[in-house]
Design a protein around this nucleic acid. Structure first.
Lengths: 348, 348
DNA sequence: CTGAAAGCGCTAACAC
DNA sequence: GTGTTAGCGCTTTCAG
């Protein structure tokens, strides 16, 4: 059962005009008499006429929609980013088509093809933790297809990029743990493929070194699936718990890892912050309600979405090929948990 | 800068064939010789040809996309539902266009027009808490436009609907509180416009009555914005805290209200479950990590998304007008929190 | 087996 | 000021 919309032709026939006259009247062209315009407008209203965007797209060779690929919308960081994306896109009359990769490379590629074939005008993407092969993205990019990366950047594709100062965010978080007296700080992080992983781990290592502590590879755990699989995080946590001497704190580099880690610690019966402290990246709004209201690194997600979308639309609407690309770095915020007296330990 | 895709015409010219032959070859028509087919297919591959979906849509008068309107994707329940929707839609080759109403009626109407004008083939909607005027939805529905309601149903529009047994879910939650010995149970709920509000409140009242307790209007607080505004929830909580005698438990009827209530109680310095117990609808995965791991009513969100989408596609693909509509009722699950000894009080 | 032509809804030269 | 025509990419009669 189909909804049959009124077309310009319907109006033209009813009014004994040509379609072009109607079209022009509708677009308020100066070469149409006021009388005719009124006639057309009235009839259009009566028929509840709406231009068919598909026909328009065919003609203009643009669809008015942009694609977004994130790993998971059920993730505070991404849903906040999407809100930012949506706010700019709607403002400018674009539709947003959201797709999830669920941290699977295969799903990402499929989605990519799908979106590209759905004739979107541009793409915003935060690559999956499993993405190591960039063939598809590069091909698309080489065709001149507008792409903007956000959060999880791909370094060797030259286009606009938006991210936070990952190094600094991780550095601050680790420094915070050090300042509280923790000394043996482990790190649970995402797939090593990701730019954010490298940068965040570097920040963590730098903070340790600043305190004269050398990082230990066995205390850095990479989760290939970025915490999508709880088992992976649990395994990492359990290994850390068995290390001798046992770490007294953990730094996690993403939302999913932070909550996954809490879950694993809870299951293992390890108290936070009593037995081990935890600090990590997270944009979850429930953090303050958690059993252990930990200190978190918060990213300006909404802002990131806005900026990325502005850059993308700029790319899309540019008349000539853009050759000069921006990399926008936003700042993170360290939201410190209320002091838990029992937490202090060690020297200092 | 635009990506110029190959068209059937390009292939036809290169091969000195007509566009219709190419078109047929591509669709593997039986009336094309194997040789020609091979020729066309090879060349199509070489040119990385992909049919233009917009041209197809124009012709077929269907876009292959469905619209979804929810209040907020940054809400566990809705993001899980969307995953369910996506899974069915992708399986069947449909694109999902997600829009948020942010619990605003104006935004919802704007979105509705927008989606309708973007020529989506059908709509899945969970109305906003502020929706009281159904003119737009009814108009769309009367034109024969396929719509399926989920979660927040609109009763007087005859189409497929998917929801949980709200009455039973609320009843079970309230009975759980009663069984634990709480007697003066308040209720913080959504806008009174919503079907789910009425049903959940009814379940709550029925449970109380089952225990010979009559419900008291002053203990039922309606939040018009469904918890989108924390102030609204805070005000409700504060009023309840001032009631004499003070309630010993609160039942909340949605995700946003449940967490909002926890936030408000925390700010007011009221301990859960020490000073007041809390139970409510929630699909958040962080519940078990909360300071007070409360008992929650969980909805089969993913499943709800799947079912709703199946019904919608059925509507879309039906040859003749559907007159026989389903209302699918799914069951909720009561996830009880681990016993906190201090919680028991009162008789029983 | 293949081609020519029309049409989906709309806009934009190009007439008159 | 208004009409005619062509064309966006594709499918589909209708002819050969």
């Amino acid at each position: 059962m189909k909804y049959k919309a009124a077309t310009i032709k319907d109006i033209a026939q009813a009014l004994h005009l040509s379609t072009s006259t109607v079209s022009r009247a509708l677009r308020d062209s100066h070469e149409i008499s006021a009388a005719t315009k009124q006639l057309v407008l009235d009839h259009a209203a009566k028929l509840n006429y709406h231009p068919n965007p598909i026909a328009l797209s065919l003609k203009e060779k643009k669809s008015g929609s942009i694609g977004v690929i994130v790993s998971e919308i059920a993730n505070s960081f991404f849903s906040q980013t999407i809100n930012g994306i949506e706010s700019v896109a709607n403002e400018k009359g674009y539709t947003v088509i959201i797709s999830q990769s669920h941290e699977s490379f295969e799903k990402e590629v499929r989605t990519l093809h799908y979106l590209a074939s759905r004739s979107i005008d541009g793409l915003l993407i935060s690559v999956s933790s499993a993405t190591k092969d960039l063939t598809q993205l590069k091909a698309l990019h080489q065709y001149g297809f507008p792409i903007v990366f956000f959060d999880r950047i791909v370094e060797d594709i030259a286009t606009h990029k938006v991210m936070v100062d990952n190094f600094q965010g991780a550095y601050n978080a680790t420094m915070h743990l050090l300042a509280e007296g923790y000394q043996r700080i482990a790190c649970i992080t995402n797939s090593a493929h990701l730019s954010i992983t490298r940068e965040r781990v570097a920040g963590y290592v730098a903070a340790l070194e600043k305190h004269g502590i050398s990082s230990h590879p066995s205390l850095i755990k990479y989760c290939f699936h970025g915490g999508m699989l709880l088992d992976e995080v649990t395994a990492a946590v359990n290994q850390l718990m068995k290390a001798k001497p046992r770490p007294d704190a953990i730094f996690t580099t993403s939302d999913k890892l932070t909550t996954g880690c809490m879950r694993a610690l809870k299951k293992a019966g390890v108290a936070i912050p009593g037995e081990i402290a935890l600090t990590g990246f997270s944009n979850s709004e429930l953090i303050e309600l958690l059993h252990a209201p930990i200190t978190v690194v918060r990213q300006p997600a909404f802002e990131m979405g806005r900026v990325a979308t502005e850059l993308l639309l700029q790319l899309i609407e540019s008349k000539r090929p853009v050759k000069d690309f921006d990399t926008r770095i936003l700042q993170t915020e360290l939201i410190t948990a209320p002091e838990v007296p029992a937490k202090k330990k060690g020297r200092k």
